[in-house]
Design a protein around this nucleic acid. Sequence first.
DNA 1: CCATCTTTGTGCACGCGTTCACAAAGACAT
DNA 2: ATGTCTTTGTGAACGCGTGCACAAAGATGG
Lengths: 254, 254
Amino acid sequence: MATGRTHRPATRSRGIPEATVARLPLYLRALTALSERSVPTVSSEELAAAAGVNSAKLRKDFSYLGSYGTRGVGYDVEYLVYQISRELGLTQDWPVVIVGIGNLGAALANYGGFASRGFRVAALIDADPGLTGKPVAGIPVQHTDDLEKIIKDDRVSIGVIATPAGAAQQVCDRLVAAGVTSILNFAPTVLSVPDGVDVRKVDLSIELQILAFHEQRKSGEETAAGDGALPAAVTPRDDADQGPDGDVPAVMPA
Amino acid sequence: MATGRTHRPATRSRGIPEATVARLPLYLRALTALSERSVPTVSSEELAAAAGVNSAKLRKDFSYLGSYGTRGVGYDVEYLVYQISRELGLTQDWPVVIVGIGNLGAALANYGGFASRGFRVAALIDADPGLTGKPVAGIPVQHTDDLEKIIKDDRVSIGVIATPAGAAQQVCDRLVAAGVTSILNFAPTVLSVPDGVDVRKVDLSIELQILAFHEQRKSGEETAAGDGALPAAVTPRDDADQGPDGDVPAVMPA
DNA sequence: CCATCTTTGTGCACGCGTTCACAAAGACAT
DNA sequence: ATGTCTTTGTGAACGCGTGCACAAAGATGG
Ligand SMILES: NC(=O)c1ccc[n+]([C@@H]2O[C@H](COP(=O)([O-])OP(=O)(O)OC[C@H]3O[C@@H](n4cnc5c(N)ncnc54)[C@H](O)[C@@H]3O)[C@@H](O)[C@H]2O)c1
Ligand SMILES: NC(=O)c1ccc[n+]([C@@H]2O[C@H](COP(=O)([O-])OP(=O)(O)OC[C@H]3O[C@@H](n4cnc5c(N)ncnc54)[C@H](O)[C@@H]3O)[C@@H](O)[C@H]2O)c1
């Protein structure tokens, strides 16, 4: 997983486990597609397949929202779309600011998937004076000096950080101080925030490293027990997987 | 979490839990920073703070790699950097292709964090003939027709999909057929792949929806038990949180 | 009204991940 | 050499998430 919320051990106020919340958007997307095709009802089996999850898990997830299904028939698509949207808070409008309008920030600003749900890009903010006033995706970039005013005037509670890593914590602090209570961080840094502020992170580099780990695994071990997959068609390098204690070219601990 | 690997229930071949693998890059980043500051050793407590995790968890994570610490002193920074790099497979070179060079794909191509670890952008691929040959981040875009040849010639095993959702599954199928066994998917779709292929996804829209859920929670419930956080400074809308069965404006199931 | 068939909702067991707490290991000073 | 002090490595308990399996609910047809 590319992200993770920061510490909130067992505060699950009333209901809905975190793992379920993370899947609701998945269900919602599948349901929206069905809705556009005017499909009236869907069984847990079908919907689960579309969302790529286990059907029992899906049913349990929905049971946290209430009993919205009809036995022998399935779930009413439109009704579920509404219920999940409401549960996720998508029936209201969420103004979002993007800070750091570089390569990534500009791509995010141009992203259509933003507005498709209740999210609206309220402002683009950058520290570069050369960018100030320049329109990106039809929205003029504003200078960091006005950050606090923008947050407060537009009552923004969600901020996206797309600045270099070095500036991320500072930007984060200013956002939080101005009233932002949810942050989506693309910079490769651990942000520290006060209690009550949620941080989720997206880290491309971490994702690739996790893939590399498994990729390396695939190259080694042919003798793993009962693997019915395709162990061929991989390119075994020289002699990868030299055991967990092969050579020791680096410094020794002591 | 923005992503998640696809089904591999309890295959954990020999050692290292998935949750630990996902944290290794975090440790590595913190350790690299220490290394650049020429810090020789670090305690689990310090490193855990830098990585934003619990120190016991960090020690247990490291225990899966072997006993690389010295009691009373801590961990040797350089040595750990090497061990984790090797475990993650970063001591070798990983050629990566990016498919779909639009807003996002171009931003990814320009991203410096790619090469910083062992990842190298081997090729940029797009279906738009108008893009073919045009350099992005110094690399000329190649046409989708040559996808199979590129994958095979460069022995690419990791692919990044940044095409529109509608094309993602098709692109995925071609990548897999050509020999790619790890995919990082930015398109908002569930990809289905054969066993032995790893998929991780990054979905901005899902992240925002999860944040919105918690944001909505913060606006409601003042009376939640023992919350020492800052329940003030939020803008309570009209009367959000109308119970799980408040009004029912949408269609009824039956 | 009854029988049958489909599909939900959930009790239950199991495994993974997290965290506490502490014994043992080793550095360091005397 | 011995004692003290720091910090690791891990045993054990706990909670969360997952998935099986099934009883109950309700639709549908006769
Ligand atoms: N480009 C990618 O695909 C990608 C992928 C993953 C992560 N990231 C991360 O996202 C961040 C941005 O990447 P990028 O490629 O867009 O970098 P970039 O250099 O193109 O853009 C950074 C922008 O942030 C602005 N900025 C710098 N300091 C600021 C401050 N204090 N306040 C406001 N704005 C400030 C700069 O003016 C610049 O416009 C980096 O942390 C990068 O590591 C990028
Ligand atoms: N832009 C973002 O910030 C962002 C954020 C999250 C997710 N996404 C997702 O990432 C994907 C790309 O977003 P974008 O904004 O870059 O879109 P885009 O339209 O700018 O770029 C898409 C590119 O893919 C190419 N393409 C289309 N079909 C293809 C095919 N079959 N093979 C190869 N290339 C093909 C197009 O020519 C185009 O260059 C979308 O699925 C989007 O939902 C984008």
